[in-house]
Every structure is written in C-alpha cells, then in structure tokens.
Simulated scan of single mutants.
Amino acid sequence: MIDQIPPVVPPGRLRELAHPVYDLPGGLLLRPWEASDAPALVAACLDPDVQHWTYPGLLSTAEAEARIAGWRTRRQDEEAAMWAIAPADGGLPVGLIGVRELDLPGGSGEFLYWLLPAGRGSGVMTPAVDRISRWAFEELGLHRLRIIHSVANTASCRTAEKAGFPLEGTMRGALLHADGWHDEHLHARLRTD
C-alpha cells in the first residue's frame, strides 16, 4: 500500500487565521476589503490599465459590494485571501493584492495585484508582494507562490523580480486579452528562497 502524502497546509488553517493588517511604506497599509470600498473597485474596473491586464469586467456599486463579500466567502472556503492597499489614515483603496487559486494540500497559490493611478509609481507593490509572501509562507504555511503576467506587462515583471520571484519561463499563447493572445511569464518563489 502506498502511503498518502499529508497536506502541506491542513484543512481549516486559513479559516483559523485572523485577516492581518500590515503597514506599508508611503503611509499605506494592507487591510481587508470593506463594502464601503466598492467605489475603488468600480474605478479599477474603469481604469484602462487594470482592464487591459486583469480584465475584471465592469461593475456597478452593488456588484462591487457583492464581489467584496465574495472575497470574504472565498477566504472562509480557503480559496483566496485578498487585501486592499489603502491610505493608513483612511480613504478608499489605491490597489488590490491577494493570493488566489489556493491549493492548500499542495502548498501553493498565485498572486493577483493591481494599482489605480493614485498608487502607481509609489513603489508600494514590491513591499506589498513581499509582505503577503511572508504571511503566506510563515503564517499560512504554503511552499510555493507564483506570479503570472503578460510578457508585455513590464511593470508586473519588475515587481515580481524585485519581490524575489525569479522568472521560471514563458508560457506561449497562454492568456487571451482584448488585443489577442499573450505569452505569459511565470515567476515563482519558494518558502526556502
């Protein structure tokens, strides 16, 4: 009989963890999304860069509130964990970061992130990716995190490399964008890196 490999992260681990809040440079912080943040999500869906790279679709305020509620459900279901990148002194988020496609038994997940124009150029995404990586490895117990982005998205590539996610390869024609099929870069970081 073949011994079963135990799960890297036991079921229920993400549900047990509090949703942490972390300080970031530039007077920003990582915090859970709230229903009152819906206008920022609506704005992201209208932003041409966010639309081009992540294609979230257009959302009404009610639909944005439902999506935010869905993120809470997905966290409880141990499928994803999302944070708002927001001013520490209050106000609407300027970005989003999260780990989705969580495979707790296999110990992996994939980053999702974007910034609105108010957050771009601030250098905040690299420390945000690093902070959430450390949470995912040290608190949640994952083994591997990945970042996948269009090869044309040079800003995301820089963020991945600066955050300690070396390029592992290129996936040809891997994702359909509005302007056609894009090759995608695959970056990854291990707990042991």
Score class of each variant (00 low, 15 high):
G27I: 12
D89L: 14
A35F: 07
N153M: 00
A35H: 04
I85S: 07
S36K: 13
D47H: 00
I5S: 14
G169F: 00
N153A: 02
A136H: 06
R67V: 14
L96A: 09
D3G: 12
D89W: 06
G106T: 08
A118K: 11
D3Q: 13
R172N: 01
D179H: 09
G109L: 07
R131H: 11
P7K: 11
L186E: 02
V151M: 03
D77I: 01
V50A: 09
G164Q: 08
P39Y: 07
A40Q: 09
D49S: 10
G119L: 07
V94M: 12
R172D: 01
F165P: 10
T61S: 08
L58A: 08
H185I: 00
A81I: 15
G12S: 05
K162N: 12
C157G: 15
L24D: 04
E110H: 13
E78S: 03
R134H: 14
I68V: 05
L190K: 00
L175D: 07
V99R: 05
R75G: 15
G169W: 00
Q76E: 12
A88Y: 02
E101G: 10
H177G: 01
L102P: 13
C45L: 06
A178L: 05
C157F: 01
E78N: 02
G91H: 09
L140C: 08
R158I: 06
P105T: 11
D47N: 04
L142A: 08
E138N: 13
S108I: 02
T192E: 11
R146C: 04
D77N: 15
D103N: 12
E184N: 02
R134E: 15
L102Y: 10
G98T: 08
R75D: 12
H182L: 08
F111W: 05
D183V: 01
G107N: 09
A163V: 03
E139K: 06
L167N: 07
G119D: 07
W114G: 06
R67A: 14
T126A: 15
P56W: 06
M1F: 11
D23Y: 00
A66N: 00
A62E: 15
Y55S: 11
A18F: 02
L175W: 09
A62R: 09
H149N: 15
P20H: 03
L176C: 03
D37W: 10
E16C: 08
A155R: 12
P7C: 05
E110L: 07
E101K: 11
P56Y: 04
A84S: 04
G121Y: 15
E139S: 14
G12N: 14
L175M: 05
W83I: 02
R31D: 01
R189E: 03
G95Y: 09
P48K: 06
R191C: 03
I5N: 13
G180V: 05
L116E: 01
G90K: 07
P166E: 05
G141H: 12
L28F: 14
I85R: 05
D3I: 04
G141V: 14
A18P: 05
L115C: 10
A118N: 02
E65L: 11
L92F: 13
E161S: 03
E63F: 10
S60L: 11
I5K: 13
D89M: 04
C45V: 04
E34L: 13
T192K: 08
Q4K: 14
L104Y: 09
G169T: 00
